[in-house]
Amino acid sequence: MTHGAGGRAMAQLIEAIFQPALANDFLGQGNDQAVMPLPRSGRLAMSTDGYVVSPLFFPGGDIGSLAVHGTINDIAMSGAVPLYLSVSLIIEEGFPLADLDRIAQSMGAASRAAGVPVVTGDTKVVERGKADGLFISTAGVGVVPPGLVLSGDRARPGDRVVLSGSIGDHGIAILSSRENLEFETAILSDSVALHDLVAAMVAAAGPHLRLMRDPTRGGVAATLNEIAHQSGVGIVIEEGTIPVKSQVIAACDLLGIDPLTVANEGKLIAVVDPAGAGSLLAAMRAHPLGGEAALIGTVVEDDRHFVQMRTAFGGGRIVDWLAGEQLPRIC
């Protein structure tokens, strides 16, 4: 690609790629902003996130679909119905147009499948070396139905913790493509938009729901620790209740990592008061994205906000919130 001198030519090319891929009425207005009707009731939810992932294309997805799903999910975790997205791309000069096209198509497909349009966008091309291929930043807005209040500080002792499905798929898909790990059946990223599952959950157990979180970076371990600290409680999860695919376990064994710390992009954790746990679980299991939903633990009183895993043996192993790379601790 040699559009170095012709910034204008480059901009046109990019527009020619993204406009049709993401096409919708709002984007088609061609203005510097999108103008949309106000929802009649409820409260507005808004979220923004940056996506840097290597490799850009991985089994089960790519950075484009990931950027759409990630922001939809962050909005949905408030119980909101996601309405609109925006996207901003930072592209390194020399980035292959074919790859850009694949990513644009993937974003469009993800957005259409989710029914959440990208209503405004921007692209910038930066000099070689100023960006690692491509960065995507998305923002979104949605509407929380009246009366529904989900927040990370609402977990109370006695509440139940529910997980929507098997963990570690995304992180292991990324790692195995990055490190050339080969498995008999490929592990695909679980990247998916969860707002439809959330809608089913709200319908089934709305008033009983305390909070929802998607366990992305840092995995289930980080998310549970965040909840414990934000709510000032402890959480006890039961070993053996957490669904993990056998290939994911094998990959984690190989790499020496704990599946609880591996990222997910299509799973959620919900905390629900015990009275709503049954109906919530039933609704989740009836949904295609929650077939493996499981009750994984209980919120407890704990002044030190420990998250612990109760083993079959009765002991309480601390589920840690690791600072960074998983350095050994056995001396």
Binding site: L255, G256, I257, Q326, I330
Partner: peptide, 10 residues
């Protein structure tokens, strides 16, 4: 080479 962090110790 350290293959698999703490797993290598086990």
């Amino acid at each position: 080479a350290l293959l698999g962090g703490d797993r290598a110790a086990r």
